[in-house]
Amino acid sequence: MQESFLIFITKISLYPTFVFTGLVMFVTLYWVVSLLGMTDMDTVEFGESGGDADVSNLSSTGFFTGLMLKFGLYGVPLIIILTLISLIGWVLSYLYTSFLHQYFDSGVLYYVFGTGALIFVLVVSMWLTGVIISPIRKNIAKIPKRNAISNVGKTAIVRTLSVTDKHGEAELNDGGAGLILKIRPDMNENSLKQGDKVVLVEYLNEANVYLVAPVKDK
């Protein structure tokens, strides 16, 4: 049992698998931090919000943005995209390490074939991730958009550990499952913490965030 575990650790530490091992560790840590309310998740959007992006002309976009558009990696939280790419890439690279990489255990060929496998696995992982999130993105696009401005004046509860001008989330009871809203403090109010009640003062459309102020106890 111990020997099998050591073999497993060795394989996930080999090139190129260790690249995806590191990514899996990163996204796992991010999910833990997110569940603790220490950060919020952003959705990757290009073009019209929630709709399909125009991939007919990628020359006007940056390389990274164009690559994500090409593989359909948009319309859902970025951490979900990274999680899927990491997990798929880890499995594929682990299989490569287990069955093929043993024939190139040293020298130049070790890194040449390892780098080739890394690129191939990354491309396949991005493609499969795009296939997986495609129906999710389309279903999200079909959901009728709520009038965000109509939430202004309502009371929500802070769910992140703190609220700064960089991050913050609050939960709004809408009579259903509840809404998770991105919030920022109004008038440089930096004392907000998890569990505080806040009033939604203003909605900033371009940033898709609400300015909030603490609810004063009577």
Rank of each mutant, 00 (worst) to 15 (best):
W90Y: 10
Y96F: 15
S125G: 03
K145C: 02
F64S: 15
F120S: 08
T129S: 11
L69S: 10
I81A: 05
V123M: 08
L128W: 06
G130V: 05
G107S: 14
F113M: 13
F104T: 07
I136M: 06
T65F: 15
S59T: 15
L67P: 12
W90P: 03
I143T: 05
L73Y: 13
F104Y: 13
K70D: 11
V112L: 15
K138W: 11
I88H: 04
Y110E: 12
N139Q: 12
S134C: 10
S60L: 09
I88K: 07
L78S: 04
L109N: 11
G72R: 02
K142L: 14
Y96I: 01
S60H: 11
L87N: 06
L58W: 11
I140P: 00
I132W: 03
A141W: 12
T97S: 13
S93T: 05
L118R: 03
G130Y: 00
G130D: 06
I80Y: 11
N57I: 07
F64K: 02
T129P: 01
L100E: 02
L69D: 09
W90D: 00
P77Y: 14
M68I: 06
G75N: 09
S125F: 04
T115P: 05
S106D: 15
I85A: 00
L118E: 00
K138F: 08
T129M: 03
I80L: 15
S93W: 13
L84F: 04
K70S: 14
L109R: 06
V124S: 06
R137Q: 13
G75T: 05
K145R: 12
T65A: 15
K145E: 14
I79D: 14
L95Q: 13
D105N: 03
I80Q: 04
I132D: 06
Y96W: 14
S106E: 15
G107N: 05
S98M: 08
Y103R: 11
L67W: 09
F64C: 06
S98G: 01
G130H: 07
F113Q: 03
I132G: 00
W127K: 06
L122Q: 02
L84R: 08
I80K: 02
S134G: 02
L109F: 12
V123D: 08
I132Q: 01
L92R: 01
N139V: 09
K142H: 11
L78W: 13
I143R: 14
Y110F: 14
T83L: 06
K145Q: 12
F99H: 05
L100V: 13
G89K: 00
P144R: 04
L78K: 02
V121A: 01
F63T: 02
H101V: 06
G114R: 00
I136E: 11
V76Y: 09
Y111R: 04
G72L: 06
K145N: 11
G116D: 05
V108R: 06
L118N: 01
Y96K: 03
I80D: 14
L67I: 05
K142M: 12
F113W: 07
V124G: 04
G66L: 05
N139L: 04
M126F: 07
I81M: 02
V123Y: 10
F99Y: 15
L84T: 08
